[in-house]
């Protein structure tokens, strides 16, 4: 995949200008903020390096929870999609139930999971699992069932059985939708893990770090956690995108 240079340079340039204005207190003047209310980029970077061990420890904890929860949630969602495809009569109900789960707000879910699991990690994984199930179930179901016209006819002209249709046709053709779901889920998994830490009994993780630092008015520390969360979120997304590019290089979206 080759991008034009200007496609990369423009956003990069825009980002650099944004950071420079921030560093030169441009936003402070604009919004009438004191330096302690909004730390400048250089101060945030320095704070990250000064507290590298603590920040990276918290980061690892949150990412572990997010990824574990996402793996479980996506697996459940996919299983529901497969069930709904193979047994349309009653399997479709499972899809509806899972979509309903999606409507529960994280702020309600976190305290509930707090009561269910004794550890912070258990609570985190629980919240992320519930949050990521629906996107996978709905997308995978669509991928398994929105087949190209005549592709089922083709299979029946070969007298193919249900099993062959599933493994040779439905499964490969749902891959692009599965990756769409994974890309949605990795972002919501990080958000869900961080927000769940706000309500957790434990005193670790990026979410707790943000809440605790801001509460104690350690603004630079708070911003360090925010920055690390953002960077980790982007890196995880890029990793999934890279895997996607390798796995479905045949798909039109990967040209």
């Amino acid at each position: 995949m080759m991008k034009k240079k200007s496609d990369i340079l423009w956003p990069l340039g825009f980002g650099a200008v944004f950071l420079i204005i921030w560093q030169l207190y441009g936003f402070h003047r604009l919004l009438d903020l004191k330096p302690f209310q909004l730390p400048v980029p250089s101060e945030i970077i320095m704070t990250i390096f000064k507290n590298l061990e603590k920040v990276s420890g918290d980061c690892l904890l949150t990412v572990t929870g997010a990824i574990a929860g996402m793996a479980i949630g996506s697996a459940i969602g996919f299983a529901v999609a497969v069930t709904a495809t193979l047994f349309p009569k009653w399997g479709y109900g499972g899809l509806t139930v899972i979509s309903a789960f999606n409507a529960i707000p994280i702020v309600a879910l976190s305290p509930i999971m707090n009561r269910w699991f004794s550890t912070g990690m258990g609570q985190k994984i629980g919240v992320v699992t519930v949050v990521t199930m629906a996107a996978m179930a709905i997308n995978a179901y669509r991928g398994l069932n929105d087949l190209k016209p005549f592709s089922l006819d083709l299979m029946s002209s070969y007298a193919a059985d249900k099993r062959t249709v599933f493994f040779r046709l439905r499964l490969p053709s749902c891959l692009p939708s599965v990756f769409t779901a994974l890309k949605i889920n990795i972002t919501s998994a990080m958000i869900a893990a961080i927000v769940s830490e706000y309500f957790a009994a434990s005193t670790s993780g990026l979410g707790f770090g943000i809440k605790d630092s801001l509460r104690k008015a350690e603004m630079a520390m708070g911003w360090s956690y925010i920055t690390v969360s953002a960077i980790v979120g982007i890196i995880l997304y890029l990793i999934i995108q890279a895997v996607e590019r390798r796995a479905i290089k045949w798909h039109a979206s990967q040209k």
Binding site: P149, R168, P172, S173
Partner: peptide, 28 residues
């Protein structure tokens, strides 16, 4: 049909996108 004596060409090519040209012809 069960003896697989029909070769059918549809209105659209109905190639499987994840298979190369060679693998598509090979599918049946």
């Amino acid at each position: 049909r069960l003896e697989k004596k029909y070769g059918i060409v549809f209105q659209s090519p109905v190639l499987y996108d994840w298979r190369t040209v060679r693998k598509n012809i090979c599918l049946p």
